Simulated scan of single mutants.
Amino acid sequence: MRVVIAGAGAVGRSVANELLENGHEVLLIDKDPTKVSVERVPSAEWLLADACEITSLDEAALERCQVVIAASGDDKVNLVVSLLAKTEYGVPRVVARVNHPANEWLFNDSWGVDVAVSTPRLMSALVEEAVSVGDLVRLLRFSQGDANLVELTLPEGAALAGTRVGEVAWPQETALVTIIRGSRVMVPDPDDALAPGDELLFVAATDQEEELERLLTARP
């Protein structure tokens, strides 16, 4: 898979290294010469250019890539890159970094964003996830389909404790992705019984989150 990353700061370089280790082809773009440090990610391609310019994106051959990651520290730049990648080059998957939570509402399909990643929101969600039992925590928002990755730790005394996954009438537009039980990561099977303390990860429509939380925290 060919991935173009706009923004070669610490975030962009870290993502590039991860993708390269997984066997993907990566091109890093940045207009700041001090950030174009080939020696830090020697296996990547590098382009010193402004990712907000069509000529730069032509040079990067965006039409040949499967994913664009807008990872700069400037939300305006990330929005422009996302919009150009989707509308001008038809990139199948556009992931954008949200630097300021107040701007998160802009990062949607209107701006060409498929997945918006807000570092401050993610960090606060992970804190909530670590200390919250019985509360639904939103970990990640997907722009397409108005869906979110959400987590809830099943509390003691929940009505669903002991119930098999296949017997639960989950809300519409909701999918149980995985069950984390202690050190185990379980792919949900219809015969698996839920247990108190299970960390449940779902992809769920926003308007179904409240119903999902009620279902998981209901008591007999």
Results as ranks from 00 to 15, higher is better:
Met1Lys: 13
Arg2Tyr: 06
Ile5His: 00
Ala8Asp: 10
Ala10His: 07
Ser14Arg: 07
Ser14Leu: 04
Val15Tyr: 00
Val15Ser: 02
Ala16Cys: 05
Ala16Phe: 01
Asn17Thr: 10
His24Pro: 02
Glu25Arg: 07
Glu25Asn: 04
Leu28Ile: 06
Leu28Asn: 06
Ile29Cys: 08
Ile29Leu: 14
Asp30Ala: 07
Lys31Gly: 14
Asp32Phe: 00
Asp32Val: 01
Pro33Leu: 14
Thr34Ile: 01
Lys35Asp: 13
Ser37Lys: 15
Val38Lys: 13
Arg40Ser: 15
Arg40Ala: 15
Ala44Asn: 09
Glu45Cys: 05
Leu48Gln: 11
Ala51Lys: 05
Cys52Trp: 00
Asp58Met: 12
Glu59His: 02
Ala60Cys: 10
Glu63Asn: 09
Glu63Phe: 06
Gln66Ala: 13
Val67Leu: 11
Val68Cys: 01
Val68Phe: 01
Ala70His: 03
Asp74Asn: 13
Asp74Lys: 05
Asp74Thr: 06
Lys76Thr: 15
Leu79Thr: 08
Leu79Phe: 08
Val80Phe: 03
Val81Leu: 07
Leu83Pro: 06
Leu84Gly: 00
Gly90Lys: 04
Pro92His: 02
Pro92Leu: 02
Pro92Gln: 02
Arg93Pro: 07
Asn99Met: 03
His100Glu: 12
Ser110Ile: 04
Val115Arg: 00
Ala116Leu: 07
Val117Lys: 03
Val117Leu: 13
Thr119Trp: 11
Pro120Val: 10
Met123His: 11
Met123Gly: 00
Ser124Lys: 11
Ala125Phe: 06
Val127Asp: 05
Glu128Met: 11
Glu129Gly: 10
Ala130Leu: 08
Val131Lys: 09
Ser132Cys: 01
Leu136Ser: 11
Leu140Met: 13
Leu140His: 09
Phe142Tyr: 14
Phe142Ile: 08
Gly145Ser: 02
Asp146Tyr: 09
Ala147Glu: 13
Asn148Pro: 00
Asn148His: 10
Leu149Ser: 08
Leu152Arg: 06
Thr153Ala: 10
Thr153Met: 06
Pro155Lys: 12
Pro155Val: 12
Pro155Leu: 09
Gly157Val: 10
Ala158Ile: 08
Leu160Gln: 08
Ala161Phe: 01
Gly162Phe: 02
Gly166Gln: 11
Trp170Glu: 12
Trp170Tyr: 12
Gln172Asp: 15
Gln172Ile: 10
Thr174Ile: 02
Ala175Thr: 12
Ala175Phe: 06
Leu176Lys: 09
Leu176Arg: 08
Val177Asp: 00
Gly182Asp: 08
Gly182Phe: 01
Gly182His: 05
Ser183Pro: 11
Arg184Thr: 09
Arg184Tyr: 01
Met186Trp: 07
Val187Asn: 12
Asp191Ile: 00
Asp191Met: 02
Asp192Asn: 14
Ala193Lys: 12
Ala195Asn: 12
Gly197Tyr: 05
Gly197Trp: 05
Gly197Lys: 09
Gly197Ser: 07
Asp198Ile: 04
Glu199Thr: 15
Val203Gln: 03
Ala204Tyr: 05
Ala205Asp: 12
Thr206Cys: 06
Asp207Trp: 07
Glu209Leu: 13
Glu209Lys: 03
Glu211Thr: 15
Leu212Arg: 08
Leu212Phe: 07
Glu213Met: 02
Glu213Asn: 04
Leu215Arg: 10
Ala218Asp: 11
Arg219Phe: 00
